[in-house]
């Protein structure tokens, strides 16, 4: 019971704070539908692009169309969850620049959770729906032999992939404490870099692959987890043969690392926080 309330209460509180933001968004109904449609349309364009390419070629580096769609859709799902439940992370730059973080530091709740739930990105709902639909569609075409173990693994990797994205968002946005600009330019450019992970990363130059595997591990949001579920192997990077599947299985560790990094950088940054003059 005690454990349940220790974990349960913050989640309930988190949901309540988020509900406030959703209510606020729903006040502007037109905006709600526009945002939804815009995100779905934008990402559909990407999907059509993918489909066009694959109508000319059978596979990319051993990845079939529907497998690539899973990679592609995983990015949407992770971004969708990020926008829908953790959108406030993107407001950090503004909060720091304007000194709006002050009140979050004066409440008996973790400031990180308060930052994360201080906004909601309804476009995330569109991404999530589209991503979910595409994954469902892919799986129906892929004829994977689903054992209980594989289902459990897939779910674990999905959660880890999402957590990796959330952690990276927090870590890159924590740069706001150092940069102090009201815009999250740095975090956003990193986020753009994440678009590279929408495709099998083996199509890129080694340096790019290393970048999104090690430096900013966006590849663990989509490519590696998918590789593990599809039992892919044989990854050559700079002439070295790497066990691709094992990278996929390491996704939970990467997720923990990214989240830890986010929390660490946030706390470090908080020491530098200057508020805003009155």
């Amino acid at each position: 019971m005690v454990v349940a309330s220790r974990i349960g209460r913050p989640i309930v509180l988190y949901a309540r704070c988020l509900a406030v933001q959703i209510k606020a968004v729903l006040e502007y109904q037109a905006d709600f539908w526009i945002l939804m449609m815009a995100s779905v349309l934008m990402n559909l364009v990407g999907f059509v692009f993918l489909w066009t390419i694959f109508s000319k070629i059978p596979d990319v580096d051993g990845w079939t169309f529907w497998q690539v769609v899973v990679i592609y859709a995983l990015v949407f799902v992770a971004e969708g969850v990020g926008s829908l439940f953790f959108e406030g992370t993107w407001n950090l730059a503004f909060l720091v620049n304007r000194g709006e973080l002050d009140f979050m530091l004066l409440r008996p709740v973790s400031p990180i959770s308060q930052v994360m739930n201080c906004a909601v990105g309804i476009n995330g709902l569109g991404n999530l729906l589209l991503g979910g639909t595409l994954i469902g569609l892919s799986l129906s075409h892929l004829h994977i032999h689903w054992t209980l173990g594989r289902v459990a693994l897939a779910l674990l990797l999905l959660v880890s992939a999402i957590a990796t994205k959330i952690g990276l968002n927090l870590a890159t946005n924590a740069s706001a404490f150092w940069i102090q600009s009201p815009f999250s330019g740095f975090a956003f450019s990193m986020h753009q870099l994440g678009d590279l992970a929408r495709y099998p990363i083996t199509i890129y130059a080694s340096a790019v692959q290393a970048l999104i595997t090690v430096a900013v591990p966006f590849a663990f949001i989509s490519f590696f987890p998918a590789a593990a579920v599809f039992s892919k192997n044989g990854w050559r990077l700079g002439g070295v043969e790497l066990p691709l599947r094992w990278f996929g299985l390491a996704t939970p560790l990467v997720a923990v690392y990214c989240c830890w990094m986010g929390v660490f950088l946030f706390r470090r940054g908080l020491r530098r926080y200057e508020s805003a003059g009155n």
Partner: peptide, 11 residues
Amino acid sequence: FGQRTQLWWDI
């Protein structure tokens, strides 16, 4: 803070 509010803006 006299110049700022801790209330939620939209509710």
